[in-house]
Design a protein around this nucleic acid. Structure first.
Length: 506
RNA sequence: GCGGCAGUAGUCCAGCCAGGUCUAAGAUCCUGCCCUGCCACGGCAGAGACGCGGGUUCAAAUCCCGCCUGCCGCACCA
């Protein structure tokens, strides 16, 4: 298999990402399988750092609880959640108006036949024989296709217990609700996060990392009293401006979060708050503000559990605006359903208000792989001679690269001691002595290493080294003794590069 | 899933139409040695490929079929 044609930035970037070990198509030696990607030695730390940022924003920053539940769940969970009903169906679509219908229901409605479990071809035959047309417009119905995006499996021997790979992490949180309520000390609102893999057996995944069959998602379920959907820190970002595209509207408007809440553009304060937080998070990852917008899903687009959903979209050169997060008002749908199906009482009693309620849920849900792609695309710089990943320093998979100016006069030996020093101080550091100095800088730039340390003859005299900045290629000279703390401050963003040492004069 | 096009070293490609001379060329990248006093310098050496499976044929990178993967369009993306 091949990923070829270097005719655009995107293709050039993907070539780089694969060649340098950010991502690889999975199972290449067996021909590959669509919709799966491996994260390579550079992609893995980058992804982990993105996840860590999310955790800082949505778990630590919000005081949320974080859990980790199984990716395989028994059928009952998805009966209750509505996913079985909405995910696993044979569908047909009107070729004229585009409406999609469940074949079994359509056939039952028109002929009274129960065709549950019939194969695709059989159903197509029935549609033809009975001349079943589109109930909406009378148009011709297309072929029958499977609409089963959950991976099915069996649990244990005998194949009696059916299970599914979870299509979202959220259900793991809802089924733990009673214990979580205790953990949160029975106070609202409280948030529970989960970061992990989700699975959707996409009919036809394309667009590289944008539509995967196995992906990493980061979700936060905020449980709240529907009569008090406010956020204690709302004022922190109430004045942030969001680009909003309301459902059914033509125009995208800039609006402050506070105004959007007050005017009812978004359903409540929690929705507004998490939209604002989402934008801040994306900016923190290096996505330029003008490339972030929020789009309200239309009723038809919305998931079965949602009353209002705003997608956070990021503009990419290759794919246009793509959804990277969805912030859904799930109401009490999930808790009510699980309560009904499990016969467990999932209502809570609010002591201070002397009321018993079913919590409502607001859910910010992030697709980490898509964000990973956006971060890469927005950091890829290509200006004539140089090409480099201008990754935020905190996200760079490798912190620093050390090399000797030349491979003689004891410089390599000295460089190795500096490399060891930094490694012991927990930096992600590599050593490179191959090729010319320029080639080594280029190699480091290409994978976004923020700083390069060069050992030269002066190092041997006064224990100073040069630090070179990736984005500007400027250099300063600093002592080896100060190097660990200087680098740490630079990587944290606490120190300006110009202040990291004395400017190098040639 | 349907239709069209495609798949040769890590990457970009030559060869395919007109089967043998392909023991598969070139560039780049990578590794080692030499050179090199700071931004992909140069020299030498080395490593590395016909997507998978079947068929036709004396002979297949080349022709045929199936699959996989990729790209484009349609559909799908709850």
């Amino acid at each position: 298999m091949r990923v070829n044609l270097l005719s655009s930035n995107h293709e050039e970037l993907m070539e780089l990402a694969i060649r340098r070990g950010f991502i690889w198509p999975s199972f290449e030696m067996y021909g590959g399988v669509r919709g799966f990607y491996d994260f390579g030695p550079l992609g893995t730390p980058l992804k982990n750092k993105i996840i860590q940022k999310w955790r800082e924003f949505f778990v630590l920053g919000e005081g949320s609880l974080e859990i980790d539940s199984p990716t395989i769940m028994p059928e009952e969970v998805f009966k209750a959640s509505g996913h079985l009903e909405h995910f696993v169906d044979l569908m047909t679509e009107c070729e004229k108006c585009g409406q999609a219908f469940k074949v079994t229901e359509l056939v039952k409605e028109k002929t009274g036949m129960d065709v549950e479990g019939s194969p695709k071809l059989e159903l197509e035959k029935i549609i033809r024989q009975h001349e079943i047309a589109c109930p909406e417009c009378g148009g011709k119905l297309g072929s029958v296709f499977e609409f089963n995006t959950m991976f099915r499996t069996v649990i244990g021997p005998g194949g009696k217990r059916v299970g599914y790979l979870r299509p979202e992490t959220a259900q793991g949180i809802f089924v733990d609700f009673k214990r979580l309520w205790r953990q949160a000390r029975e106070m609202l609102p409280f948030g529970v996060a989960q970061i992990g893999r989700g699975y959707r057996n996409e009919i036809s995944p394309r667009q590289g990392m944008i539509r995967l069959r196995e992906f990493t998602m980061a979700e936060l379920e905020v449980f709240f009293d529907p009569e008090g959907p406010s956020h204690p820190r709302f004022s922190v970002l109430g004045e942030d401006t969001l680009k909003l595209w309301r459902a059914g509207r033509e125009k995208i408007v800039d609006m402050e979060v506070r105004e959007a809440v007050e005017k009812g553009v978004v359903c409540n304060e929690l929705m507004g708050y998490y939209m604002g937080l989402t934008k801040r998070f994306l900016i923190e990852l290096g996505i330029p503000e003008e490339n972030i917008r929020f789009r309200e899903q239309t009723e038809r687009q919305r998931a079965h559990y949602s009353k209002e959903t705003w997608d956070a979209e990021v503009r990419t050169e290759r794919f246009g605006w793509i959804e990277v997060a969805g912030i859904a008002y799930r109401t009490d749908y999930d808790l009510s359903r699980h309560s009904k199906f499990s016969k467990e009482d999932l209502t809570v009693f609010l002591q201070s208000e002397n009321r018993r309620i079913t919590c409502h849920v607001l859910e910010p849900s992030f697709g980490i792989d898509r964000i990973f792609y956006c971060v890469l695309e927005h950091s890829y710089k290509h200006d004539g001679k140089r090409k480099y990943l201008s990754l935020k320093r905190e996200l760079a998979p490798i912190d620093v690269c050390v090399f000797p100016l030349m491979n003689r006069d004891g410089l390599p030996e000295k460089a190795i001691t500096v490399h060891e020093l930094l490694r012991k101080r927990k930096f992600s550091v590599v050593y490179d002595a191959s090729g010319s100095i320029g080639r080594r800088y280029a190699r480091a730039d290409e994978i976004g290493i923020p700083y390069c340390i060069t050992i030269d003859h002066q190092t041997l005299e006064d224990h100073s080294v040069t630090i070179r900045d990736r984005d500007t290629t400027k250099q300063v000279r600093s002592s080896i003794e100060d190097l660990p703390s200087t680098l740490r401050s630079l990587l944290n963003g606490e120190l300006e590069f110009e202040s990291a040492g004395t400017p190098l004069t040639k």
